[in-house]
Design a protein around this nucleic acid. Structure first.
Lengths: 153, 153
DNA sequence: GTTGAAAATAGCACGAA
DNA sequence: TTCGTGCTATTTTCAAC
């Protein structure tokens, strides 16, 4: 196996495996084997190697927030007030409505994805942040590109 | 089962199921059954119902772009030039380095997540967009909050 | 939702290329 | 090394309750 971070390291079979697992992570190794034309132990071994190489970090469920009553999703840029960077980072982590947050370059250090049931709930979260940071909120209207993999080779 | 979008609709067992599947989507129904204290056919039935209700949209692999040689990740705000909205949307969809894109409110209609191997590749993507849109790029330095579920009840 | 039996699958050792 | 075959344990699925 090649070192992590060097390429390609992935042949067409690995690419097929990753692609299939991305479409349906609960597929059986047998079915996966049929799809790419290998034996089940063979693909299972490759999957283990991809995990060991750090390519496959895990498998997760795609859950639809709307179906849980979270009608609104928004991207929030967050700029902590002077001296409040660490405090704000803790606030962000402690806010259960923030389902993801990146530290980014530029004027606003954080870009968070917010999921709320209604405008009132959104306002509550933003108000709580407002004491220690300036926020810019953009409501998500739709997905132009649904989560997908980058080119695998 | 309650109508999609009405709450709660989820009891503690469903919440446990979703949480466990989010942590590891490839867990067996038997193991999941043990975790939440039910029989295997019982949990399997609940999982089917959560899928039918639109709560569980699917299961996907978490793939680490870095391990594939994509050293840089960035969030790009994209503002199409007048009359170029649809063209830009097509360009975005056709760009394999864009792994996700939201249509949002505000001055910049699109917020895309970009994954590239190096600065040169990033420049190439942004140059291609520059003909038809104004872009603002923020490189992702780290994840402050790793993808997680909102409160399930 | 549970139990129990049949079919499919996973995981292992071993041999071949 | 990496993959395939054949075995056993586990899991899935379906029936009946």
């Amino acid at each position: 196996m090649r070192l992590q971070g060097t390429e390609p390291g992935l042949d067409a079979l690995d690419a097929g495996i990753l692609s299939a697992l991305d479409r349906d992570a609960r597929i059986t190794m047998s079915e996966l084997a049929r799809l790419i034309g290998m034996s089940a132990p063979g693909v299972a071994e490759r999957v283990r190697r991809l995990e060991a190489a750090g390519v496959l970090k895990g498998f997760s469920a795609e859950i639809e927030p709307r179906a849980l009553g979270y009608a609104i999703r928004a991207m929030v840029r967050i700029r902590p007030l002077p001296g409040k960077l660490h405090l704000v980072e803790k606030l962000i982590d402690a806010c259960p409505n923030i389902v993801e947050c990146h530290k980014i370059t530029g004027d606003d250090p954080f870009l968070a994805q917010l999921v709320v049931r209604d405008i009132e709930e959104m306002d509550g979260v933003l108000e709580a942040l407002a004491e220690h940071a300036v926020t810019s909120t953009a409501v998500i209207k739709s997905q132009a590109v649904r989560r997908r993999l980058p080119p695998l080779r």
